[in-house]
């Protein structure tokens, strides 16, 4: 399956977890996401994702439950665990800690914790099966420049940290000099490194053909620009129509859709002169579409099941 499909699966689990109200399905989701992470995750990412996501999920669960014990309104009935009450005063405020914990309170805590844990594990599952960076790579061709910029930014971050560390250690060796000069002494070398590095990278990319364009008729260039301009104007009008209550929502939405079409046409025209090819293009297969469709319907059904009746009640009561 393509990275996009894996991520829609993972995010579906996360959305389901946030919609579900009872602990049993949450336990199921937690187990499912964790099992997926362990069995399907890429070997290189598996160990660290189990540690990071599994650890965080467990920590969140424990904290949520512990909070129910510590910051507890002492229960009078349905007591599950009985603890002594601690009371003291802070600035004339009475503070109560611990005390008898009721079973509904405890269950609410466990449900909360399980929900957050399931969301964390679902994202962890997607991230360990399909590296988020591979998601960037399956971005449509129109977004290629954006995707490249993002990958580079992700690659530059560690370099920035290592030059910061290097300069900081050098500062220690120099000794003395505090305040503004010291700050300048850190910022200037780090900036110099970063700028130098960006220039090197740009030179290397240009030398390898980045920014190449094929031949393109002038008429096409102008049409693409005109379509983009009209699209932006339509977006502006649409947002006014939608936000000002005097106009029909339908006309607003229609204008918005027209704007979208114009932008799509412009991107398509502008993309015609591209000479670029891709080494790996992950085309979604029938299976991908089936999984995505199932995910979508699962989310819709759960959402309607949760909010549908409630909304009706709200709307129809006078």
């Amino acid at each position: 399956m393509t990275p996009v499909t894996w991520w829609s699966l993972g995010l579906t689990l996360a959305v389901l977890a946030s919609l579900v109200q009872t602990p049993q399905p949450l336990v199921f989701l937690v187990v499912l996401a964790f099992a997926g992470m362990v069995s399907l995750g890429q070997p290189r990412l598996r160990r660290s994702s189990v540690r990071i996501y599994g650890g965080t999920a467990l920590f969140v669960l424990v904290v949520r439950v512990a909070f129910r014990f510590v910051f507890n309104v002492p229960a009078t009935s349905q007591v599950a665990v009985s603890l002594p009450v601690i009371q003291f005063q802070i600035f004339a405020n009475q503070v109560t800690l611990l005390g008898p914990v009721s079973s509904p309170n405890l269950i609410a805590g466990v449900t909360d914790g399980l929900r957050l844990a399931a969301i964390i594990l679902a994202v962890g599952f997607a991230a360990s099966v399909a590296n988020p960076r591979s998601l960037i790579k399956s971005a449509p061709a129109v977004l290629y420049e954006f995707a490249t910029a993002t990958t580079i930014a992700l690659n530059v971050a560690p370099q920035l940290i290592s030059s910061l560390n290097r300069v900081r250690r050098a500062r220690v060796l120099r000794g003395g000099t505090s305040g503004l000069a010291s700050l300048r002494g850190v910022i200037i070398p780090v900036l110099e490194d970063t700028i130098q590095r960006s220039l090197d990278l740009a030179a290397s990319m240009d030398s390898r053909g980045f920014g190449r364009r094929g031949a393109m008729r002038l008429r096409v260039v102008y049409s693409a620009r005109a379509a983009a301009g009209i699209g932006v104007m339509l977006f502006g009008t649409a947002s006014y129509l939608l936000l000002a209550s005097a106009y029909s929502v339908f006309i607003g939405l229609l204008t918005f859709a027209l704007g979208l079409v114009c932008i799509a046409v412009s991107a398509r025209l502008a993309g015609m002169h591209r000479v670029r090819t891709r080494l790996i293009t992950a085309y979604p297969k029938a299976g991908d579409w089936l999984v995505r469709l199932l995910c979508l319907s699962l989310v819709l059904v759960t959402a309607v099941d949760n909010y549908g009746p409630a909304r009706q009640v709200l709307e129809w009561r006078p």
């Binding site: 390898r208 053909g209 920014g211 094929g214 000479v275 090819t277 080494l279």
Partner: peptide, 14 residues
């Protein structure tokens, strides 16, 4: 692959 992608080399020959 990066350079070849920019130059429009066909995926198979890449």
């Amino acid at each position: 692959a990066f350079g070849m992608e920019q130059l429009g080399v066909a995926p198979a020959s890449m």
